[in-house]
Design a protein around this nucleic acid. Structure first.
Lengths: 228, 228
DNA sequence: GTCCGGGTTGACTTTCGAATCAGCCACACC
DNA sequence: GGTGTGGCTGATTCGAAAGTCAACCCGGAC
């Protein structure tokens, strides 16, 4: 290969830009109408791009969804892993996981919408992929709880995998409430409160010792209570 | 109208049988391949019935899904309402809700699979219906928690709607773990344990007084603890 | 200025499955 | 046994959307 000329690399940049533009448009459209409810034409229009160009950059519609998924989910998994591993105490880790999830929503509600709604979908080509991606996070979290249980941080009578299920249940249904408009996701106060309360209740229900995290860790990350 | 002859009423019975057969087949097929992943032909074959007959009994594919949904969901809502209203203490109600959900799974895992997977999904005709059906249950549960809070059964610093979200988050993710095979749903012990633990942790995290329900109510419905 | 190449275009082809419909057949009633 | 009715059949129709492709355009190289 010749050393990449200025032109060539610039071209490559533009290439990547195009890809991203289309990918972003796909997120937008999937979020609005769902994977099955939209046509490639919609994606193309949203991206201000010719119909055919979508197929220049992506093999097919499924690949598009797959990539939207991998991009969003990949980042999420990385952050969750970061939160779940390491020496921090369990309550901090759980707080962090809620933080990660809700920040995801803050940054890109559209993207979260696609992940939440299009998630555990029926057997498209990608089912196996998505299922295992999901299983991966559950696994990750399960072993977080397992380690915590050994350290005596978790109630010893709780099954770690069920804790993981409960944790992500709370996360997912919280986000679903936002996505479905049962909670007002544009109101940061609502977001913060939801995040805090879910984490707090979860920890109350699962930690071994009674509320050690309540004796203030640096002021208070939890701003629950307050109203009547 | 003439009084229904024996023949006519028998015919009507067979009619209803057919409907049910097809509906059941639809549940089966939706559960296996998802709504979008299956064709009407699959439903017909599963029901051992001619393709066209499906359209004799149902207007179209969407109506089929809608009915599968309403049948399953309707029963569920009724039971949840029954559990959530009335004078019983909050902990018993919550226990009952978990009971209802897991019994649903025990009786008809296929049906639950469809509800769980096909739930809040993309904008078909029925989206509004399903969304409001979902909202209805959340509403129902929210007001259950509201009343409980007034009676001092719920931690006063918790937002009832978030409690509802958390409760159904736990239920849904628990069932998802079953549906996805992360837990072995054929093992009754696993089911019972999951049900008990989820309810227990949830109550630990949200009840006002510390574990009043642990001082045995009629022996113990909760068989948590026990192992290491 | 001309030529080359690949990104870009959108009309066209293909595929696929929902929905239709022109009968068929089984059974009840005469 | 004949006849009519209505549940039942499945090949056919039809539309919608995925995916293709040949021509076009524009930017850079010479």
């Amino acid at each position: 290969m010749a050393p990449p000329s200025k032109a060539a690399s610039a071209a490559k940049d533009r290439d990547q830009d195009r890809r991203k533009t289309i990918l972003r448009a796909a997120v937008e459209v999937f979020a609005r109408k769902g994977y099955h409810g939209c046509r490639i034409a919609d994606v193309a229009r949203e991206a201000n791009v010719a119909y055919g160009l979508v197929y220049h950059y992506f093999r097919n519609k499924e690949e598009l969804l797959q990539l939207v998924f991998e991009t969003g989910w990949g980042g999420f998994v990385a952050r969750i892993r970061e939160a779940a591993e390491g020496p921090a105490p369990l309550d901090a880790k759980v707080q962090r996981i809620f933080q990660v999830a809700f920040d995801g929503y803050r940054v890109d509600p559209r993207g979260v919408r696609v992940l939440v709604l299009e998630f555990a979908r029926g057997p498209g080509t990608g089912e196996a992929n998505r299922r295992s991606a999901f299983a991966e996070v559950m696994q990750l979290t399960r072993s977080m709880f397992e380690r915590a249980r050994l350290k005596g941080e978790l109630r010893p009578d709780l099954e770690p995998s069920l804790c993981a299920a409960m944790l992500f249940g709370a996360v997912e249904m919280g986000l679903t409430s936002l996505v479905m408009g049962l909670l007002d996701g544009r109101d940061e106060a609502v977001l913060a409160r939801a995040q805090a309360q879910l984490a707090d209740s979860f920890l109350h229900g699962t930690l071994a010792r009674e509320a050690p995290w309540k004796q203030d860790r640096s002021g208070s990350r939890l701003k629950t209570a307050k109203r009547s």
